[in-house]
Write a protein that binds this DNA or RNA. Structure first.
Lengths: 111, 111
DNA sequence: TTGCTTTATCGTACGACGACGATATACGAT
DNA sequence: ATCGTATATCGTCGTCGTACGATAAAGCAA
């Protein structure tokens, strides 16, 4: 996409947007759930779970890793991933507080 | 982006991803908060609030409208927008249940 | 009507995303 | 050393997202 001019927005909005970007593809949503369920997981198992090529899964893993939501460690020829709960919780909390605040303003409108 | 092959994922994952896509830009995060605070708002006021051109803001509004998160009605030469709380709540709940489920699996790992 | 205001849409440009196959790398096993 | 396995990265392609200015459309005011 074109360079999103994020420099002019508030940090909270950017954090929420970054978190949302990470969840903006069903594969990444699925990956996070699988990692949560299994606690940790090697790349190959995730590839089996997903209707995507190995290289594509690797890319999605990189996206999650770049934001810090997951971490990977090498295990012989494999890569073992797991959720970085601290980071996940941070983002999840940011979104949760935002949406609760939003809902706090709820009142009847024409919608 | 390349045609995301969403057809092979589960509806819940797609819903969460769609919601996340809507929040994946700080401008849209900000728009939703402003609409919530003011209950309703005309396009021009949102343009004043944001460091973006009028046409760009209009595009972001369209994105939110396409997903159903907001609604607009014409008011003379203006467009008056407000949050569609029912739809917002639906998506917010989907995400919330997902993340709570995720956190429910939390346990110690090497991360 | 004429003109002003407001907003949606068009046209355009460019960067990012998502997909894949192919390849390089690195490790384990034989 | 060689082979097989696992994964990250590269190259590439097409599509979408984001930005803007310009313009069209629609309503109000005079």
């Amino acid at each position: 996409m074109a360079l999103a001019r994020t420099e002019n927005f508030h940090k909270k909005e950017i954090d929420i947007a970054d978190y949302a970007k990470a969840l903006a593809h069903p594969a990444r949503v699925a990956i996070l759930m699988t990692l949560a369920k299994k606690n940790e997981c090697i790349c190959g198992d995730l590839v089996l779970d997903l209707p995507l090529a190995q290289s594509t899964v690797s890319q999605h893993l990189k996206a999650l890793k770049d934001l810090g939501l997951i971490q990977g460690e090498v295990d012989g020829p494999r890569s073992r991933y797991c959720i970085n709960w601290k980071v996940f919780e941070k983002f999840q909390k940011a979104h949760s507080e935002w949406s609760e605040k939003l809902l706090g303003f709820r009142q009847d409108n024409y919608c």
